[in-house]
Design a protein around this nucleic acid. Structure first.
Lengths: 165, 165
DNA sequence: CATGAAAGATCCCGATG
DNA sequence: CATCGGGATCTTTCATG
């Protein structure tokens, strides 16, 4: 949690583990041009600082079945704090919603829903509407193809962001 | 690439590594109620079958700086195969675009863009329009808050998907 | 699939220059 | 920060039941 200044080496470490989460500490050190010991110390600091939330395998879902993805935009009819909280609590509990962002001051939401089938998706939306979440309007965009899925380019982002936390 | 039948144990392994990518093989075996040896063999099969694309650290970007996320929807003015290909090639080369899906038969795209600032985002969009990609219309949704970010619930998805690949 | 075992690599953490 | 250890742990691959 402590505020620490990140130098170029720290960034390189983050880039490396983001790309290859199972690298051995020795190879990671080699990759960032550092000897193992200080590299390990830095990695520990980064983890302790909460900059590394965890490690996850990237599972090829498309090989597990023909699942349905839908992008849904939602606007609420009222914009009291309690309206947002109620909606977000509901969304937070839906395991099928994998992403949700608030846009334009919280007036609208964009979410991505992952279900076994479109039928399941429809049932989910019906339940959602019955839950009286104050949804004014929603639009669904059925995903027909995944064109791209990548991680943010950390190195590029930091290149023009000198005042890091 | 080979087609293999996945049983409940395989799914448990995938769920486990998806959640904890750095688990030691011993602890993974314990977690899925298997002894280390067959667990290791299964994991190898899953990897060889292309079901595990890789492992990645989840870096807390919001602690690295105040970056800007924007959701962009795009529709193309024409729908020839070459139009899609040109657009997708351009998107594929943009490191700032972290996600892109085609919706409704490829007529529209929804993408997520990650930039150091909104100014950078605007410059990016200008360049994109100058590139003559046949964009008819686009809408931007500036992300003001990340409400949720989760991985698909593999176990739930497979529960009602008996005919797996 | 469980167990046991063994060579090799890795991890974590010291101490030193 | 680099290097050198060293004991504990983990990995990977053998057997065998």
């Amino acid at each position: 949690m402590s505020r620490i200044g990140l130098d170029a080496t720290d960034i390189r470490i983050l880039v490396a583990v983001q790309k290859c989460g199972q690298l051995s500490k020795a190879k990671l050190a080699e990759m960032v041009n550092l000897s193992p010991t200080p590299c390990w110390a830095r990695l520990s600091r980064l983890k302790a600082a909460g900059l590394i939330r965890g490690y996850h395998a990237d599972v090829a879902l498309e090989r597990l079945g023909n699942f349905s993805q839908v992008v849904v935009t939602v606007s609420l009819s009222q914009h009291r704090k309690s309206d947002f909280q109620r909606f977000e609590a509901y969304i937070g509990a839906m395991t099928e919603v994998t992403e949700c962002v608030a846009t334009g001051g919280g007036m609208d939401y964009v979410l991505k829903v992952f279900t076994p089938s479109l039928r399941t998706f429809q049932e989910l939306m019906e339940k959602m509407l019955e839950a009286e979440l104050g949804i004014q309007r929603y639009m669904t965009y059925i995903v027909t193809r995944e064109v791209k899925s990548a991680r943010p380019d950390l190195a590029a982002l930091m290149r023009r962001e000198p005042g890091a936390a």
